[in-house]
């Protein structure tokens, strides 16, 4: 990540008739970072991206990309942008290879150069075995990968990915996330939207969290995690539990919350160092028969919960 700004968004507002889908959002994206746009369904992520790309007429605000004002006919800017939309956009009549060839051809006219680009894109999302397949014949995950290949084959410097992993199997998801990291390592700047916490935690350098069109938090993932009140969460599988015994856990040091459901006990701590040791002592002293014990650091979900009082995922 450098300190060169690739995107500058200032006071972006997009209103649909009565709804303020994007409500005065400002942020910068720096060169060679993976910038995460995190928010629940309907929070305005896609609207923000479509406005940045001039695909939508936004109500007010300023947007510049590569230091130039972004407009619908800023073709010199568009040349260096790649977009992967939320919905898969491919031709049913064309094969995997032909689809990538077509979309890449909108940017690169030279045949030889294009061929190399297509091969690189196919390799990046590892769909080499499916070159001659038609979209109908691909699984959901492979289709998503093809969708990505179509968006990045022309080697853009700035890439937007709008929820590229929705409804995707874990294998494809990992392949996609690895691919994105590789693109960044090769020098691209990436704007990534999702409503999956884990993904943001896994790959994003900086993050903004939006809810109802407003930015409710921003920073690096470490910065953001500090916003969560809890520091550690310990989960234990316990066969039996009663109310009295549950209350007992609350007396442990720095415990903020205790819950028991479906043989699983979850205890949250606001800080402290020996939480796990204390926990195990407590379990032994009270003759609990327990199986697994594991500890987690707080997630962005906790941050979101803390900030909005609701879970990120429904």
């Amino acid at each position: 990540m450098s300190d060169k700004k690739v995107i500058e968004v200032k006071n972006l507002v997009k209103e649909y008739k009565e709804l303020r889908a994007v409500d005065d959002i400002s942020f910068d994206v720096y060169e060679k970072e993976i910038f995460g746009l995190l928010g629940p369904n309907g929070s305005g992520k896609s609207t923000t991206i479509n406005s940045i790309l001039s695909l939508l007429k936004y109500s007010s605000g300023n947007i510049s990309i590569f230091g130039k004002e972004m407009t619908p006919d800023a073709y010199d800017i568009k040349r260096d942008i790649g977009v992967i939309f939320q919905d898969v956009a491919v031709f049913q009549e064309l094969t995997v290879y032909e689809n990538i060839d077509y979309f890449c051809g909108l940017y690169i006219r030279d045949k030889k150069q294009r061929k190399q680009c297509i091969e690189d894109a196919i390799e990046l999302v590892s769909i080499g075995d499916y070159k001659k397949f038609y979209p109908k014949q691909l699984s959901g995950g492979l289709l998503r990968r093809l969708n990505i290949a179509c968006g990045i084959a022309h080697k853009p410097k700035l890439i937007f990915l709008d929820e590229p992993t929705v409804a995707v199997d874990p294998q494809s998801r990992n392949s996609i996330l690895e691919g994105i990291k590789k693109l960044r390592d090769d020098g691209a700047t990436i704007v990534y939207t999702t409503h999956y916490m884990e993904e943001v935690e896994q790959i994003c350098d900086r993050i903004i969290i939006i809810d109802k069109g407003k930015i409710i938090a921003s920073g690096t993932r470490e910065n953001l995690k500090k916003l969560a009140k809890i520091e550690e969460r310990i989960t234990v599988e316990i066969k039996k539990m009663d109310k009295e015994k549950l209350e007992g856990f609350k007396k442990l040091e720095k415990v903020t919350d205790v819950s028991y459901e479906g043989h699983t006990l979850v205890v949250s701590f606001s800080g402290g160092k020996n939480n796990i040791a204390n926990m195990i002592d407590h379990l032994r002293n009270n003759n609990f028969s327990y199986r697994r014990v594991y500890s987690e650091r707080p997630t962005l979900n906790d941050v979101f919960l803390e900030l909005t009082g609701k879970e990120l995922r429904d």
Binding site: L53, Y75, D87, A89, F91, E93, F103, L106, Y107
Partner: peptide, 26 residues
């Protein structure tokens, strides 16, 4: 009809508009 509906499908049209080929030329 098949060709035109394919090309004018919303998502594909969005991809075309965002590309560096001008929509007029397209």
């Amino acid at each position: 009809c098949i060709v035109l509906t394919s090309f004018s499908e919303t998502t594909i049209r969005k991809r075309t508009i965002i590309s560096s080929m001008s929509y007029k030329k397209f």
